[in-house]
Amino acid sequence: MPTEPPDPAATAALFDLLGEETRLRIVRELYRHRREEPDEPGLSFSALGARVGVEDTGRFNYHLGRLRGSLVEKRAGRYVLTPLGAHLGAVALESAAPDPAGPSP
């Protein structure tokens, strides 16, 4: 049975979400944490912000909020990737050029 092609509008919306550098770094860092610490679920707001390297918490909160629901969820006070977010995080991390913000701590 053939699978339905992805909805072009939904695909464009995902590219729009990840087209902003801070949001892409959030997804990458959550995926990197998931891969490096599989037994530790997610990151707190402050830990994720530190890994992403955004000092303006209002700006960081705005971008994190844009990702919530589709690519990121909050569980027990920690941010984790949705299944789609994990898939895109893997692609983003494995195919990315070096992060201009430098390596994560």
Rank of each mutant, 00 (worst) to 15 (best):
L14Y: 06
L14G: 03
F15L: 14
D16R: 10
T22F: 02
R25K: 07
I26S: 06
I26V: 15
V27K: 07
E29Y: 03
L30N: 05
L30T: 09
L30M: 08
Y31H: 14
R32M: 08
R34D: 12
R35T: 14
E37Y: 15
P38A: 10
P38M: 08
E40R: 15
E40V: 15
S44C: 01
F45Y: 11
G49W: 03
A50R: 13
A50F: 07
A50C: 01
R51I: 01
V54G: 00
D56I: 09
T57E: 14
G58P: 01
Y62V: 11
R66C: 07
G69Q: 02
G69N: 01
S70R: 15
L71S: 04
E73K: 10
R75G: 00
R78C: 06
Y79C: 05
V80H: 03
V80D: 03
P83W: 13
L84D: 04
L84C: 05
L84T: 11
G85D: 05
L88N: 01
G89C: 07
A92S: 15
A92W: 07
L93D: 11
E94P: 00
S95V: 07
S95Q: 13
A96L: 05
A96V: 06
P98R: 12
P98K: 03
D99V: 02
P100N: 06
P100L: 08
A101H: 11
P105M: 06
